[in-house]
Amino acid sequence: MSQIAEVKTMVETGKSKKVGAAVQAALDAGIAAQTILDGMIESMGVVGEKFSTGEIFVPEMLIAAKAMSKGVEVLKPVMAGENSTSLGTCIMGTVAGDLHDIGKNLVVMMLESSGFDMVDLGVDVPADKFVEAVKENENVVLVACSGLLTTTMPALKEAVQTVKAAYPNLPVIVGGAPVTPEYAAEIGADGYAPDAGSSASKAKELINKA
């Protein structure tokens, strides 16, 4: 098995204790850090797809994200001098009145693993906070709003519309159990992801369109 393939397998299967050594071995063999990172991001894409199709579940996705993060730790010092490979900053939060964080946390991990710099505002986030966070952070390319309760769907609408009023060209993606693609479109969101697994590809699609 090639060194890159080994790193990818370790990410996909969540071998967080071994992935660091595999990444180091790949670096030692002269493989570029960016190539290794791209390989790991690709692995997380596979993980996301498997999650979306029900082949794997929350634990497997989380342990893969954990392994990815261990691999990135090894790459970070090597890549410090290189040009930024970040896809940009994504502001994410669960909307006002909603305390659910599991789905939101999964999306944060998946987007981070896909190359976004994540700013996690947490739960119960008022609409204005999303706008403030866009102002306060550099290179914001995406806002992601999560809502898990039917009762907080109006807050989701308010969050989307407040961000769009302040930043009409900034893409906003939404998700959460009661949210449908139709509702996302109705409230003015640019995109919708039905689960954490598909959030990364949708997020990339949105920023490429913007």
Binding site: G14, V58, P59, L62, I63, K66, D101, I102, N105
Partner: peptide
């Protein structure tokens, strides 16, 4: 915590 508990279920360590 949810994430850590979920990982613990499948982490051989």
């Amino acid at each position: 915590g949810v994430a850590e508990a979920a990982v613990a279920l499948v982490d051989e360590d």
